[in-house]
């Protein structure tokens, strides 16, 4: 935990609806994540953890308060600037993999590079390298339908890291996988965290998945209920 501050929530509110019907998904959350951390975010549904993740990933903006990402006031940026921020610094991994159907693994991984304007040849090379990093050599030209769930999630991780992001946002990355596959994916994420120094923010339901992270933040009713370092015990 020695990195600089990457993410700072300063009294962040996120509210939906108006008047009596207003719902506060986040009610004045303060939070900090340093670069190089691997943080698990837990909490029951409706606790605000997904909203917090969307804000962390620069997909959403706070209603009130300040969200600062790499020292940038990301909560005040417009759509296209946030898109640029995501493209340059954030990788996404989703529960449902969210790969483009009928598109090969390598084409899926190339996608974020297209929006960066990287030339075709270089794009291909980088995508092949990223696929190798997640252990998918030989599966580069398979479409998602021809890959198992674990393999699809590896393609998704390759797509997230191909741009060499600062932050990886993972939304229940193992939610659709069995125990063995879950273990493999979590090992992969841990390795990316330690070897590449990639900061990871991961939402999960499962305590044993959260245990791979170095720190667990629990949300409850729009507040941070607990925020603790995971102890290195069995």
């Amino acid at each position: 935990m020695s990195g600089s501050r990457l993410i700072t929530f300063d009294k962040v509110w996120k509210s939906y609806g108006q008047g009596e019907a207003t719902v506060h998904a986040l009610a004045g959350v303060d939070l900090a994540i340093r670069s190089g951390e691997f943080v698990a975010i837990m909490g029951p549904s409706g606790s605000g953890k997904s909203t917090a993740m969307n804000i962390i990933g620069c997909l959403d903006t706070p209603t009130a308060g300040t969200y600062s990402f790499m020292g940038i006031d990301a909560g005040r940026l417009d759509r296209n600037r946030r898109a640029m921020l995501r493209n340059l610094y954030v990788g996404f991994v989703f529960q449902g993999y969210n790969l483009l159907p009928r598109t090969t693994a390598v084409e899926n991984v190339e996608l974020p590079l297209i929006y960066r304007g990287v030339a075709a040849r270089e794009r291909h090379d980088l995508a092949m390298k990223a696929l190798a990093e997640v252990g998918l050599v030989g599966r580069e030209h398979h479409t998602p339908a021809e890959l198992s769930g674990g393999q699809q999630q590896r393609v998704a991780i390759a797509r997230a890291i191909v741009t060499r992001p600062t932050l990886l946002v993972a939304d229940e990355p193992t939610g659709n996988l069995d125990t063995a596959r879950t273990h493999e994916i979590m090992e992969l994420l841990t390795r990316l965290n330690t070897e590449l120094g990639l900061t990871i923010a991961m939402v999960t339901h499962e305590a044993d998945v959260a245990f791979y992270a170095g720190r667990t933040i629990r949300f409850l009713d729009g507040h941070v209920a607990s925020d603790a370092v995971n102890l290195e015990v069995v």
Binding site: G57, N80, A83, R86, N87, F92, L111, Y115
Partner: peptide, 12 residues
């Protein structure tokens, strides 16, 4: 698909 593209950095 549009969501994915937007998330990973496509502009409008």
């Amino acid at each position: 698909e549009i969501g994915i593209r937007l998330a990973i950095g496509a502009h409008e």
